[in-house]
């Protein structure tokens, strides 16, 4: 059964301020949503509300057809921080996340060395994560999305520190994920380089977001 993501009347609050409200959309398998908007318009807040890390003020998020009815458990969240330990090698980091996150009922992740190669970083898997440049670190953080399979990817500024070629490589990964029946929600300033994505423009401070 293909996955389907429902978001209904979502609103979230940071401290006293209502950041956004009445956000609703439905994403089917193979669809991507790009969340755009100025700094502080609530893109990150929306992604954190979707991932369940920020309890939403109102509304609800549910997923159909995935192994778990809970979106948090069926999704990958790639935030501003890479969730990697500087002291461990790249390989150790990825092996840990693979073991810890495990396989979801929806599919299996790639072996660690295949994932490293898919990001074009083969040959540096033995280096401590802290030795890598910012762009390499970001690419390694993306390898986490590959080593354990989750049908939904929630990406917050995924390509911020990347050069043009890495950008294209990442677009390729997203395309493959979509072709396999996944769903991607990405907050970004740059276009993802994928055709046929929908866009949600955030206007910030309880402004209305509209799905185009």
């Amino acid at each position: 059964m293909p996955v389907k993501l429902h978001v209904e009347d979502l609103a979230a609050r940071r401290g006293e301020d209502l950041i956004f409200h009445d956000i609703s959309f439905v994403l089917r398998a193979g669809e991507a949503l790009v969340v755009t908007g100025a700094n502080g318009s609530g893109k990150s807040t929306l992604l954190r509300a979707l991932s369940g890390l920020l309890p939403p003020e109102t509304g609800r998020v549910r997923i159909e057809g995935a192994g778990s009815p809970n979106l948090a458990e069926s999704s990958h969240y790639l935030g501003h921080r890479n969730a990697m330990k500087r002291e461990l090698t790249v390989g150790e980091n990825l092996v840990f996340w693979q073991d810890f996150m495990g396989d979801s009922p929806d599919g299996n992740g790639l072996p660690v060395d295949v994932a490293i190669e898919a990001l074009g970083l083969s040959g540096i898997g033995h280096l401590p994560f802290g030795y890598l440049s910012a762009g390499q670190q970001r690419r390694m953080a993306m390898a986490r999305l590959l080593v354990a399979y989750r049908p939904v990817w929630l990406l917050d500024e995924p390509t911020a520190a990347l050069d043009a070629s890495a950008d294209r490589m990442f677009a390729g990964l997203v395309r493959i994920h979509l072709e396999k029946g996944g769903i991607v929600v990405a907050a970004t300033h740059q276009p993802l380089g994928i055709d046929g994505v929908r866009e949600l423009r955030m206007t910030g401070f309880a402004g209305v977001g509209d799905v185009i």
Binding site: S51, G52, A72, K85, R86
Partner: peptide, 14 residues
Amino acid sequence: REDGSLDVMLMQET
């Protein structure tokens, strides 16, 4: 929390 690992841990089924 600082390197973002806590977010991923909070989201797991475990």
